[in-house]
């Protein structure tokens, strides 16, 4: 029964899990001039968290996750532009539903494949959506996208605009917290355990009678919905949406975030997003023409010496300490 207690202990809420949220609130007061940047970091964390669910937990390798980010971003953009629907929270829900539906439909087809075929098909899904957004100019603004979008007050109380950085930041933080609670519940549930099983050994999961593809499609759908929420937040916070939200650069960027932070570790998205965006911010200021070089070198160092990302370093340290304590 010792082990049973151990598993229960690991799934319990731990004191240090409050730290990211306390730090986020502390940043609100400590760096009032950087709240716009902070909002972008929070959106990136949410996007990376959604990718972590499929890549880190279910082991589904995708290069097209921006498809869902973009779907969410365009959903709120089009609702605001064409229907005058600019209420933020219902916009998020609509974005989640649209992105989730696209995730479900594409997942049912794509997840019949594995490996390189899957990688290519996820890329194709994103490219198809990007082209659809490019060609449907009457609805999406085409290449120019939809600039100058405005959104109404949050809950009718808090001003929400590109100029209201404080509201934006707290709003993004609240949405991230709610989405994180969903992801945390999922990954520590039996469903999450079975996703990890699928990642670890597909053959064995079939042999224990798990409906593997159903679980994969479900995870893919939830992940797509969360990425859609991140995309919707992006549009609401920036007041515009264009084709860049559906680009390979965005998909690759979020994967780099996870590799930096450590995938399949829940908090890797936090560490990776902060590290990536800070690096990008600092390097772009110091070396405006060669900042990507610094980012590339960092990534190579992480890939060579810390394959499980920054969180992985802490994990192996903890394991070493536990082993020596035994």
């Amino acid at each position: 029964m010792i082990a049973a207690t151990e598993l229960a202990r690991r799934h319990r809420l731990r004191w240090w899990e409050a730290l990211p949220w306390i730090a986020s609130l502390a940043c609100f007061f400590a760096f009032p001039n950087y709240l716009a940047f902070g909002t972008q970091v929070l959106i990136t964390i949410l996007f990376a968290l959604s990718l972590d669910l499929v890549l880190g937990y279910a082991g589904i390798v995708t290069l097209g996750h921006a498809a869902f980010f973009g779907a969410g971003a365009y959903t709120v953009g089009m609702m605001a532009m064409h229907w005058g629907w600019n209420e933020p929270i219902s916009g998020l829900i609509a974005a989640a539903l649209v992105a989730g539906a696209i995730g479900l439909a594409s997942g049912l087809v794509l997840l019949r494949t594995h490996g390189l075929a899957l990688l290519m098909l996820t890329l194709c899904t994103m490219a198809l959506l990007e082209q659809a957004a490019n060609m449907g100019a009457a609805w999406t603004g085409g290449f120019d996208g939809m600039p100058g979008l405005s959104f109404s007050k949050i809950l009718g109380l808090f001003g929400f605009d590109v100029l209201y950085y404080r509201s934006q930041y707290l709003y993004a933080l609240a949405v991230l917290f709610a989405c994180f609670a969903i992801v945390r519940t999922l990954v520590y549930s039996s469903f999450g355990q079975s996703l990890t099983g699928i990642r670890e050994n597909l053959l064995r999961m079939h042999a224990v009678g798990a409906p593997v593809r159903v679980r994969q499609v479900l995870a893919y759908t939830v992940s797509a919905a969360l990425a859609g929420v991140a995309g919707a937040l992006f549009t609401q916070a920036n007041g515009y949406v264009n084709l860049a939200v559906l680009s390979l650069e965005r998909s690759a960027g979020v994967m780099i975030v996870l590799i930096l932070g450590g995938y399949g570790r829940l908090y890797g998205a936090f560490v990776g997003a902060i590290a990536y965006m800070l690096l990008e911010h600092v390097l772009a200021k110091a070396y405006p023409t060669a900042w990507q070089l610094g980012l590339g070198i960092t990534l190579i160092v992480v890939a060579l010496f810390a394959r499980n990302g920054v969180i992985g370093i802490f994990d192996s340290l903890r394991r070493r300490i536990e082993r020596s304590a035994r």
């Binding site: 229960a8 202990r9 520590y188 039996s190 355990q193 079975s194 798990a210 159903v214 679980r215 479900l218």
Partner: peptide, 21 residues
């Protein structure tokens, strides 16, 4: 636990922590 969860039909349960079953 993964094998037992599948047999008991709770492998797809999303709400309750596996450590509390």
């Amino acid at each position: 636990c993964i094998a037992v969860s599948e047999r008991l039909g709770v492998g797809g349960s999303m709400l309750r922590a596996a450590g509390r079953r």
